[in-house]
């Protein structure tokens, strides 16, 4: 499936300045692999040593935090994926 990833400004030095990136992936795990392979400098910021999404990285699919989605959630064509480093607020 083709999905669009919104890249926050803090990540753009690792993505050749791109603020959006169209990727083909079936699910979140695949998407993180695609992003990591395409942008090697971004790779260590996506997953920790155990392969889990980093504690301070928030990922949303169409406004929904991925932690609320089914573990085997499969992307639909045109899904919007947003990366937010270190959520603030409170």
């Amino acid at each position: 499936m083709s999905v669009t990833v919104s890249i926050p400004s803090a990540f753009r030095r690792h993505t050749e300045g791109l603020d959006r990136f169209d990727a083909s992936a079936a699910n979140i795990n695949e998407l993180l692999d695609v992003l990591g392979n395409r942008f090697p400098e971004l790779k260590p910021h996506l997953r920790d040593e155990q392969g889990n999404v980093r504690r301070f990285l928030n990922i949303y699919v169409n406004d929904e935090d991925i932690r609320f989605l089914d573990k085997d959630y499969k992307f639909a064509e045109g899904d919007d994926v947003t990366l937010v480093p270190s959520i603030a607020g409170g």
Partner: peptide, 20 residues
């Protein structure tokens, strides 16, 4: 939802978000 939006606004605009 509000909080995430504010993170995105602060990323784009030069506003003083007290809690961002």
């Amino acid at each position: 939802h509000v909080n995430r939006l504010c993170s995105q606004i602060a990323d784009k605009h030069r506003w003083g978000f007290v809690n961002v």
